[in-house]
Design a protein around this nucleic acid. Sequence first.
DNA 1: CCTAAACTCTCCCCCAATAGGAGGGTAAAG
DNA 2: CTTTACCCTCCTATTGGGGGAGAGTTTAGG
Lengths: 128, 128
Amino acid sequence: MKIGKAADLSGLTVKTVRHYADIKIVSPAVNSQTGYRDYSEADVAKLQFVGKARRFNFSLEECRELLSLYEDQARPSREVKKLTLAKIAHIEEKMQELASLRQQLAALAEQCSGDDRPNCPIIEELSN
Amino acid sequence: MKIGKAADLSGLTVKTVRHYADIKIVSPAVNSQTGYRDYSEADVAKLQFVGKARRFNFSLEECRELLSLYEDQARPSREVKKLTLAKIAHIEEKMQELASLRQQLAALAEQCSGDDRPNCPIIEELSN
DNA sequence: CCTAAACTCTCCCCCAATAGGAGGGTAAAG
DNA sequence: CTTTACCCTCCTATTGGGGGAGAGTTTAGG
């Protein structure tokens, strides 16, 4: 099938699917007459797989790794779990960072009257 | 002073300070003889201000707004508080999203034996 | 059968916020 | 006076795409 249908079936945009072909995440056959990309059912399954992994916050590089594990019928599940745990750790790091920022900003906002007066503890803090 | 010292004093890299000049976040005077940027004490204060706001996760566009409030002695503190609360809300949204991802990934990881066997619930979930 | 719309191709620019480096001019220290 | 340290502009890359031009292809309708 052509790229438009593959994109529809995988829930991705044509732009994105083309990008994945460019960087060899999912490489379809190519019609040498027209230059049109030709996607198989298996290609679409891979696109769906990558789409889902992306929604789980895996980077494209990580998707590439997951995809090669997905294709390897003999993969040890240890490998997949390792990637997943690393991703969880990364997410937790990010969350900690955000929690700290939120706490600091909330403390500042609380001290700020938020009215017409120019006096502002937030600006003062940023000025130090 | 020249850009190197301004960068040191503000805790930013020369590259970053130059970029901020390019996009008019902090615009120093320019020596027309040499083309060297010439930073005042006030410019350095602005760079420090932006650096701190960046560490609080404000985007450069938001920094631009904060900076104009910083420079406006008559600003209503309401404006600053509004930006800060919006930033807090944005951070909380991101945290929720990450919490959901973490929960889903953790549930998957827990079901995965993580050994030599190819059977892997994580890959299976991503394949659906 | 022919035309027009829908689709596809490549190529280039754009976003945020920097980092790295080439190639060339300037300043300050020995 | 030379070396080193610094500064300049311009180009490239990063991540994960989006937008659009200009050209070729396919498909549907009349």
